[in-house]
């Protein structure tokens, strides 16, 4: 298996089609882009055309939403093959998906559904991750998702759950700082405890994003600017873990590129200040 190095890629953005032309024309100072894998699992046309153009100028990482690693359905070999094929085209620095499930019995809800934090789930997922990594020929990153429910059956905390899986499967972690914050409010736990527990050497990438505050709970909509509490948590993360490849993820209400670049610069400023202190 190819050993993916923990490399600081700098500060990146999620690649969105609204920005294709502008990126190619203005060549913004973004260190790398993250692409949504499924957007490019198509036969041809504009998506792949722009992908190749942008790839020629920027390093990329691939981020999937359909692996459904936690599902009790069998792994989808056809999907994995198409991911592998895209990897050969893109040559990404690394690839990631989510620590969740998306459906069972052949159905796909296209949502990142929550898991019970049980030993059974740890064993099931670690085993599948090893199969996926074996098939793809490299380690992958799994991302913590925002969740809105806790299962009665859970036997451990979310941070113990993700750490145990990563250790057993020898996989890597994509830490979504916003998702930690969202879940910490929804489930009334300490976001700091979460960050403090994670195995630093496995955290290869960070997502920053916005959310919708509903009062009693928070919905991770990825459609707003990043809020102060998430910036603070990011600061704490960098203080503890050092510089980690960081990007801003916006899925809806995509603002002009300039606005995202400003947010990204802010992240850069925070990280550099922390790194100096660290």
């Amino acid at each position: 298996m190819e050993n993916i190095k923990k490399k600081f890629l700098g500060f990146g953005l999620g690649l969105r089609h609204d920005h294709y032309e502008e990126i190619l024309e203005t060549k913004p100072a973004v260190d790398w882009f993250e692409i949504l894998t499924e957007n490019y699992l198509v036969p041809g046309g504009k998506p792949l055309y722009y992908l190749d153009q942008i790839r020629a100028q920027y390093p990329l990482v691939m981020h999937g939403v359909s692996l459904s690693i936690g599902s009790m359905d069998p792994l989808d070999k056809k999907y994995l093959s198409s991911v592998k094929e895209l990897m050969q085209r893109v040559e990404p620095k690394w690839i990631s998906d989510h620590l969740c499930w998306t459906g069972v019995h052949g159905k796909n809800t296209h949502d990142l559904l929550p898991l019970p934090y049980t030993e059974e789930a740890v064993a099931h997922i670690a085993n599948r991750l090893m199969q996926v990594q074996e098939f793809l020929g490299q380690r992958i990153l799994i991302e913590n998702v925002s969740s809105y429910v806790n299962f009665k059956d859970s036997e451990m905390t979310e941070w113990e759950f993700i750490t145990e899986i990563a250790t057993r499967a020898d996989c890597l972690i994509l830490l979504d700082v916003n998702n930690v914050y969202v879940s910490s409010v929804n489930h009334e736990f300490s976001a700091e405890d979460y960050i403090d527990y994670l195995p630093i050497e496995r955290v290869y990438q960070i997502h920053l994003a916005g959310h919708s505050d509903m009062g009693d709970y928070i919905i991770d909509t990825h459609d707003h600017a990043i809020v102060d509490s998430v910036w603070k948590l990011y600061e704490k993360t960098i203080q503890r873990m050092g510089m980690i490849s960081t990007m801003i993820e916006r899925d809806d209400h995509i603002p002009p590129l300039n606005e995202l670049l400003k947010e990204l610069n802010y992240a850069k400023k925070i990280a550099k200040n922390c790194a100096v202190l660290a």
Binding site: V104, H105, L113, P116, N150, F151, D153
Partner: peptide, 29 residues
């Protein structure tokens, strides 16, 4: 158990009238 939970959860997502058994109630929400 994981199968039971996922079946129960998915049923509820696909049909909101299904009453879910495995989710914890909290004071706030």
């Amino acid at each position: 158990k994981l199968s039971l939970i996922q079946n129960d959860f998915q049923q509820c997502v696909l049909d909101s009238t299904h009453e879910i058994a495995h989710v914890m109630q909290t004071k706030k929400v």
